[in-house]
């Protein structure tokens, strides 16, 4: 794993028992993982265990640690990679183990967080429908046709998660066609998962 000088320096500070005693270290790493996963990040470093440490230093270490965590998750780093990186920046084995335990505990959630950062077309999340029977309108009488009004609820990840609806109407035959095509897709998907 390639790390910038700034990250290496931040991690070295975190490894230094003169700066962070073990209690401060565990509190600090916990905050680092939490700050990535929760949206409430203000005053996260405002802990009694960290009172003695210089604020600027603390911020530098925080950036370094979160960068290291994200890089590890991004590359799906295993235990030996994480350990050797941390040993390179002078982590003792107690700190390496403590860090790796937290890393393992939060790995799944961080992975789904990173996989959600993506540019993709709007994602369909749900569908609603309404069945109507059209009797007549201003231009044609005796229409007497069932009509389905379909609404796909979509979420746009690229556009700050805004949700919108796509509405369209279908005759009976058109809906059968739509369902048939979606069934094809679902069947292919099922077959693909059995490979």
């Amino acid at each position: 794993m390639e790390l910038s000088d700034s990250v290496v320096k931040g991690l070295q500070t975190l490894a230094d028992p003169a700066c962070f005693d073990f209690r401060a270290f565990t509190a600090f790493t916990e905050v680092a993982f939490d700050s990535l996963l929760s949206s409430r990040t203000d005053r996260a470093l405002d802990l009694p265990e960290l009172k003695k440490i210089d604020q600027a230093l603390l911020k530098h270490c925080h950036v370094a640690t979160t960068t290291f965590i994200l890089e590890g998750i991004k590359q799906n780093a295993d235990k030996s990679t994480i350990s050797s990186c941390l040993e390179d920046v002078k982590f003792d084995s107690e700190r390496v183990d403590a860090f790796y335990t937290s890393y393992q505990k939060n790995k799944r959630n961080l992975e789904s967080l990173l996989s959600s950062i993506d540019r993709c077309p709007p994602h369909i999340t749900d569908a609603s429908w309404r069945l109507e029977y059209c009797m007549k309108n201003g231009h044609v009488h005796n229409v007497n046709q069932p009509t389905f009004l379909i609404s796909f609820n979509t979420e746009d990840g690229g556009n700050e998660g805004t949700s919108s609806d796509v509405n369209f109407s279908c005759t009976l035959e058109q809906l059968q066609d739509l369902v048939g095509k979606m069934k094809d897709a679902a069947k292919s998907m099922e077959r693909a998962t059995q490979l």
């Binding site: 993709c120 369909i124 999340t125 609603s128 998962t193």
Partner: peptide, 17 residues
């Protein structure tokens, strides 16, 4: 219009339609 969905949601959509 272009959309994406995941397998579980596709099955749900199908069921609903």
């Amino acid at each position: 219009r272009l959309f994406q969905t995941d397998p579980a949601t596709l099955l749900h959509l199908l069921q609903e339609l």
